[in-house]
Amino acid sequence: MNRATLLLPILVLAIAGALSAIFIVDEREKALVLQFGQIKAVREDPGLYFKLPIIQEVVRYDDRILGLDVDPLEITPLDDRRLVVDAFARYRIVDVRQFRQAVGASGISLAENRIDTIMRAQTREVLGSVTSSEILSADRAGLAARIRDASRNEANSLGVEVIDVRLKRTDLPEQNLDATFARMRAEREREAADEVARGNEAAQRVRAQADRTKVELVSDAQRQAEIIRGEADARRNSIFAQAYGADPEFFDFYRSLAAYRQSLLAGNSTMIMAPDSEFFDYLKSTDVE
C-alpha cells in the first residue's frame, strides 16, 4: 500500500513531464525553442516536437500575412500643397530567428511600431519627391510600389517581408479644404462661363447665317414673283388688247358692266357724280332695257 501511494505521485509527475516536453506546431505558425532566453531550435514545419521540460520554453509567431494600418501623416509634395495620407501595409514574418533577435520578447507590438516608423519615413520620402497631381492621379499605384520596395529593404533587418503597401486615403488638411473648394468652384465657374460664351458665339453665327439665308430666299422668291407677275400682266394686257381690237364697242360695254358691279355693291361708299358723267352712259342708253 505504501509503495502504491509513493508510485502514484511519481507516475503523475512523469506523465506531466512527458506532456510538458511535447508541443505541436500548427500550419499557421512558426515556433522557437528557447532555453534561458537563448534560441535552441527553430520549428517552421507543422508537426509534433519535443523539448526539455521546465528549462525550455516555446514561443510561437504567426506565419500568416498580417495587416498594419499606418497612422495618417501629413506630407508636403514638390508643389508645397500639403496632403494627409493614410496608408496600409501587409507583411509577414519570414525569419523567426532574426525576428526574435530584432524585437526580443516584445514581439509583434514592437515590430509593428518599427514597421510603422519605416513606412512613415518612406512615405514622406517617396511622396515628397513628386507633385500632388501625381499623387492624386492613377500613378499612385506606382508610388505605393516604390514605398513598398523601399520599406521592404529596411524591414528585412527585422526578419519581416513587406508584401504590399496601399494608399487608402489622400486628402487635403481640413484647414485647406475650404480654400481649395473655393478655388475649384471658381475654376469651374470660369470654365462654365467660357462654355456659355462659346455657345452664344456659335449661336450668333448660326442665327446670322439663318437670317442671311432667309433674306436670300425671300429676295429670290420676290424676284421670281415679280417676274411671274410682270409676265402675267403682259399676258393680260395682250389679251385685253386683242379683245379690244376685235370689238371695241363690246369691250367698252363689258368694262362698264364690270365697273357697275364693283361700285354698286351693298356697303360701298356713297358716290357723288354729275348726271351727265360718262360713267352712266350705258345705264341711260335707250338701247339697253
Rank of each mutant, 00 (worst) to 15 (best):
D276F: 04
Q35R: 13
R114Y: 14
A111V: 02
I93G: 04
A141H: 12
M1Q: 04
A210K: 00
V218A: 15
A155M: 02
S269E: 15
D139H: 11
L32Y: 12
S157Y: 06
V12T: 10
V126N: 05
T270S: 14
R140L: 11
D252F: 03
A221C: 14
S129A: 15
G142A: 09
M271I: 15
Q35D: 15
V165E: 15
S263F: 06
N268D: 05
R60E: 10
E134D: 13
A203D: 05
P77M: 04
I227G: 09
M271A: 15
A87R: 01
G267S: 01
T170Q: 10
V59F: 06
L32K: 07
R255D: 14
I65E: 12
G37E: 00
Q56H: 06
D62K: 03
D62R: 06
N153V: 14
A243R: 03
T270C: 02
R28N: 15
R97H: 01
E74S: 04
G37T: 01
G142D: 14
I135L: 12
Q262V: 11
L127Y: 08
P72F: 01
R235A: 14
A182D: 08
A150D: 09
R43D: 12
R148C: 06
L143P: 03
M119T: 09
V25S: 15
E231I: 09
I115F: 08
Q242P: 02
D45K: 07
G142W: 08
L264I: 11
R152N: 11
G230Y: 11
L73G: 15
N200C: 08
L34V: 14
S129F: 09
A246S: 12
V165Q: 02
R97Y: 01
Q122P: 01
E189W: 06
D178S: 13
A144G: 10
V130T: 10
S285L: 02
S20G: 10
T117L: 08
V33Q: 09
N237W: 13
D69Q: 13
L34T: 08
F181I: 06
E231G: 07
I135Q: 08
S219C: 01
A234I: 04
L167N: 07
D86Q: 04
L167M: 02
Q35C: 12
E249Q: 02
R183I: 10
E201C: 00
R81V: 01
D63I: 00
D233S: 07
V85H: 04
V25T: 12
L73M: 15
R152L: 03
A203K: 00
R183Q: 07
A155S: 02
L172E: 14
R205E: 07
D26A: 14
D247T: 12
S106V: 03
T213H: 10
A192V: 07
A155E: 09
R198L: 03
D178P: 09
L257C: 08
S238W: 05
F23G: 12
V85W: 03
T76H: 13
D45V: 11
I65R: 04
E161K: 09
I39V: 13
E226P: 10
Q56N: 01
V206K: 07
A16S: 13
R236T: 15
D139C: 03
V42Y: 00
K40W: 05
P46F: 11
F280T: 08
Q122M: 05
V126W: 09
K284W: 05
A16H: 08
E201W: 01
E249D: 12
S109Y: 02
E29M: 14
T76I: 11
G37W: 00
